[in-house]
Write a protein that binds this DNA or RNA. Sequence first.
DNA 1: ATAATTAATGAACACTGTGTACAATAAAAT
DNA 2: ATTTTATTGTACACAGTGTTCATTAATTAT
Lengths: 196, 196
Amino acid sequence: MKKDLRVQKTLQSIDDAIIKLLKEKSFENITIKDISDEAMINRGTFYSHYSDKYELIESFQVALVSDIEALLYGNIVGESYSEIAESQIKETILKVFEYLKENRIRVLTVANSVGTTEFAKYFSRHMYDFYKVKSEEFGVDLNSEGFTDYLITYVTNAHMGIFLKWLKNDCQESTEEMAGLIETFTINGVFKAVDI
Amino acid sequence: MKKDLRVQKTLQSIDDAIIKLLKEKSFENITIKDISDEAMINRGTFYSHYSDKYELIESFQVALVSDIEALLYGNIVGESYSEIAESQIKETILKVFEYLKENRIRVLTVANSVGTTEFAKYFSRHMYDFYKVKSEEFGVDLNSEGFTDYLITYVTNAHMGIFLKWLKNDCQESTEEMAGLIETFTINGVFKAVDI
DNA sequence: ATAATTAATGAACACTGTGTACAATAAAAT
DNA sequence: ATTTTATTGTACACAGTGTTCATTAATTAT
């Protein structure tokens, strides 16, 4: 059973409003009044859907991250490294870039809203988990738990940085190019990548 | 000529207050009244030194970053890669870890205050510049400007992630261990690091 | 089509925090 | 000891929050 038409319209207009406002000013400087004015709804109506603006932006995050998770876990199948063709990994990285490109505005506005902070934290926690699961599937047996964690942290943050820079750069490079960069940097190491 | 004694005391008590408060709650939830109460000064006195709490935290950031910059640029001398002993780079990385450890509380509170966001942005912009200058000094000639930028972004974010994770982990690993990790990941690449 | 249900509106309210102003007071510098 | 300067206490106007409630309007179900 679907939600009341009015609710759908209200939620949609709030979404549109916050996206538009985030292009003009920072998240912290946006008030509920700004949002309800822009959405052309009563301020009280906002409160009947979200308890504050943080809850609103969280709903954005949740949507984005669950999309990407579905994309990550949905694409790669297989139980050990040998079963997973390298091309499949490449394919997944490519799909992430494509998703990011398609949702550029949403990703950037969310990332710039809570500060890259909260988003990065939230997003990278999921990326971290993904890499962890994958490295275990790959049969990567590491000397110490701590070592693995740092390794994953390294990769997660590196990739996160690349993603956001690319989006801020208006996605000038092709998704294939970017997937290639990520692969080179991560597999060969950055020093090898520049031939030192 | 030194500043008025009263000013020194006031500024110090504000610093202490914000550090203490940041251990209890997030930066956004701290009010000027909280700060002035904790510092045992009049609320108006706060405003005669800082125009708002953001200006206060920025002074923290500036201090931390300028410390680290001095450390980075002060330690490495030489004009080309060949003149710079590898041990000197290692030494610098080590010193960064030592500095971070000594200023653990300050770095973490600032990072957690503005969100890791703003701090990371601010901090990594300087790190980015450093790596850029260094890679030029090293005579790294790259095919495209964009390529270099992505490479530096990759490294900067990766290192930033490691730094903060280590600090959050209570600096359990030794600074030497950490410097080694950074070196291995960056030079050999993470895949080599785990023997894939 | 009409009645019942549910959402949105407008207006009011108490509350918290902001930033400024200014005379009074206390402390430091000369 | 006198001047200078910082801090204090208090007050004020203002902006934003979050809640309440009766009224109005749209949607759903009969």
